[in-house]
């Protein structure tokens, strides 16, 4: 099989990876169709980067197999490198080279001619809105510009599949938006993108399919809408003024969403609500009728933690660590 055009962009079967005693991947199965932006959602340390590093030939799996555009990532690594582009978690930009030079060097390493490398570099600089800084050294760039240059470099070889490992981690909101816009343009152009992220919002905005990764396993897969339905859409949190009515409030809220959470330390009851904001008035009326008085009410979009809670029944490691930190204080 020679990278058949019909082959899915990525096929992963029973992939495991252990580092000493640490099991980073514990049997991942995944299939990504061509032409989609696929989001790999999970907390820090879930195994996302390890998976990306294996798929981009930077690391070898302990067991299992993986192909990208039909090419085996282990046996045919050298050939696969001609078909993929990678922007790793760490921005890989040559600080002493200008934006243009950075891209030209990558073009030459893709064995494009000098002229072709220059042409390609110029068009990518334009596409990523870096014209003003094209001839400036990269060490003068802002975080967002460096990230855009990094993503641009991953596109020099015109890859069939693009891997972006946490492309917006550590960026300020404005830079994040500019990277999002760039990825959205790629998606419209039909490039297959595998994107890892810790933010549900990001996966929701960019990815048409999402796999949720936890402790080295894919624990759920689907479209953003499907996943949100499993979480129950948005989350309603009510805070009671009377500690004794928490259980009553839980019973009331269970009519509007599944599995309400009671937090007695903050006197809060939260419930995922698929019905949307329109049902809030109803909930308030129901609580009022039951004589339960509220001191606060919030309604928020589900976060990665909500997804995790709904899918695993436990908070993500990060959230758990933060929670312990808080309770210790």
């Amino acid at each position: 099989m020679v990278g058949a055009a019909s082959a899915p962009a990525i096929v992963v079967k029973g992939l495991t990876k252990t580092f000493g005693k640490v099991e980073a991947l514990r049997g991942v199965d995944l299939e990504v169709e061509r032409g989609v932006v696929f989001g790999l959602l999970g907390p820090n340390g879930a195994g996302k980067s390890t998976l990306v590093r294996i798929l981009t030939t930077l690391q070898q799996p302990t067991s299992g197999s993986a192909t990208v555009v039909g090419i085996d990532v282990v046996r045919d690594a050298a050939r696969l490198r001609r078909s993929i582009g990678v922007a790793g978690q760490q921005v890989a930009v040559d600080d002493q080279l200008t934006g243009l030079e950075n891209l030209e060097v990558v073009g030459r390493f893709h064995h494009l001619s000098k002229e072709e490398s220059k042409k390609r570099a110029r068009s990518l600089i334009e596409r990523f809105d870096l014209e003003d800084a094209a001839n400036r050294r990269a060490n003068t760039y802002s975080g967002g510009m460096r990230r855009r240059l990094d993503v641009a470099a991953s596109l020099v070889g015109d890859p069939e599949v693009l891997f972006l490992d946490e492309p917006t981690t550590g960026l300020d909101p404005r830079s994040r938006l500019s990277v999002w816009v760039a990825i959205e343009e790629l998606a419209r152009g039909g490039t297959t993108v595998l994107l890892t992220t810790q933010y549900l919002e990001e996966a929701d905005r960019l990815a048409s399919r999402i796999a949720v990764v936890d402790h080295g396993l894919v624990i759920a897969q689907g479209t953003a809408t499907e996943l949100k339905e499993r979480v129950g859409g948005s989350v309603l949190v009510v805070q009671l003024s009377d500690h004794g009515r928490l259980e009553d409030a839980r019973v009331v809220l269970s009519r509007y969403g599944t599995n309400p959470k009671v937090d007695s330390s903050t006197q809060e009851v939260s419930v995922p609500m698929s019905a949307g904001a329109g049902a809030i008035a109803e909930v308030v009326r129901a609580l009022d009728t039951g004589g339960i008085t509220l001191s606060n009410l919030t309604f928020h979009q589900p976060s990665l933690d909500d997804v995790f809670f709904a899918l695993t029944g436990h908070a993500s490691e990060v959230a758990a660590a933060e929670a312990t930190g808080k309770s210790k204080k």
Binding site: L58, A78, R81, I84, V86, A92, V106, F109, H110
Partner: peptide, 13 residues
């Protein structure tokens, strides 16, 4: 350390 080698190692060079 700068991550550049990860880029190079992912290139067909």
């Amino acid at each position: 350390q700068s991550g550049l080698f990860d880029r190079y190692r992912s290139l067909p060079m």
